[in-house]
Amino acid sequence: MLTARDLCKRHGAFWALRSVTIDIVGGTTTMLFGDNGAGKTTLVRLLASAASPTGGSISWFGSAEPARARIAMLSHADGHYDDLSAMEHLNMAESLLPRVGPGAPPRRSPAQLLEDVGLSARSGSLVRTYSAGMRKRLAFARLLQKNADLILLDEPYSALDPNGALLVDRLLGELHSLGRTVIVSTHQVERTAKHADNAIHLSGGRVIWTGLASDAPARVVAAEPG
């Protein structure tokens, strides 16, 4: 489904990723965890084809060319226009996305998506007036709209209140049951582990451990804090 060989990425003199090789099986949820600066965000951006690697190669669904229509990313920058409303964002994307193929599942309507992320009350007001949590919910709605096969989430729990976090839990569960392939980078290791099949521990731009998600929390507790 998704393989990366000796992925390297440098920003100036700093190597954000040092020869990372991973192999993601279709339909599984993989958790990326590690301290700040371990290279999680860089890896997510490379796998989402938002950035090109300095060295190494990636193959998405078996091809070297990223099929961006089948890949969706939730990044730190939410990608919204402050002067458009939630509904306008989803309507715009709806008319920009390619028509749904005969076999593919139909796309949820903007109204339905806003309902699912709990934004229907404010769907008409400008994103400028939204709280950080509401902006994140809109980002989820835009992410789900694509029905992508590969979904990359960069710290989905950040800037969310408790019921926002519940929404993420529900989202991860739903994506898993739909058989989508999910890669989620997070600091909430314990919470995410419940929804993930396996996990990758990154540190200093290298993969220092891979294994079952259930074993991941132990690694974080064991490692001395800070």
Binding site: D6, R10, G56
Partner: peptide, 8 residues
């Protein structure tokens, strides 16, 4: 050091 891969 290779310009493309610090490990190699």
């Amino acid at each position: 050091v290779s310009a493309q891969n610090p490990e190699k």
